[in-house]
Design a binder for these strands. Structure first.
Lengths: 104, 104
DNA sequence: CATATGATTCGACGTTTAGCTAAATATCAT
DNA sequence: ATGATATTTAGCTAAACGTCGAATCATATG
């Protein structure tokens, strides 16, 4: 759990997560959104993987990353509960209705 | 806003916030809960202050720190909303019924 | 087999961070 | 003024971080 906050502490990684919210994307596709080198992005992916916030699906020579929303949600929930706060899925807005199945 | 996540990335600082959840505490009082030196704790307080997550009230030679829960809540809310999540105050548990007024 | 492609790993560099001790500052009490 | 208390500032070290270019691995294609 502590690695989650570490992972969230970098703005590039937070933006990666938000890009992944809409749909899974390949490493190169994600990297195109940032002004940093591929190796740097790869390092960011590794941090996010270590925190279990994303998962990698390798097909051929491309690697597709997808968000593990439930992990993010649970980490946030656990933390906020200690402050009398709650994290829930917002039922009103449904930004990602056909998200791929998540390995929970 | 970005400094909030940075501040949350350290376990010591997260624990400080949680200690402050119950009641405001002085710097020394807080420091007693950790196995690090006072100067180190002072540095942590500064990071939390910079992120606006805590406020300092100096009285005499003691400094009392208090949690700014609304700032934490708002930062979390802003971030989670991009993922279709919501952060709310949990009405069931009332851990700090007579908390001092917060400068919102 | 040779080459191109998608992505990672490796090694290095500069910066930031957390940690320490020692000293300084500020306040209060005697 | 002296001494004690609470906290910070200053100066330092070691480790971690983000970044890069070059090299490497794996897979696909001519």
């Amino acid at each position: 759990m502590p690695s989650v906050f570490r992972a969230l502490s970098d703005p590039t990684r937070r933006r990666v997560l938000q890009l992944l919210r809409t749909r899974p994307m390949t490493a190169g596709e994600l990297a195109d959104h940032f002004a940093v080198s591929k190796p740097t992005m790869s390092a960011h992916f590794n941090v996010l993987l270590a925190a279990d916030l994303i998962a990698a699906d390798k097909v051929g020579r491309t690697i597709t990353y997808r968000l593990k929303l439930s992990v993010l949600e649970e980490a946030l929930l656990e933390f906020t509960q200690a402050f009398g706060l709650t994290v829930t899925e917002a039922p009103a807005t449904t930004p990602n209705p056909e998200a791929p199945a998540e390995d929970t």
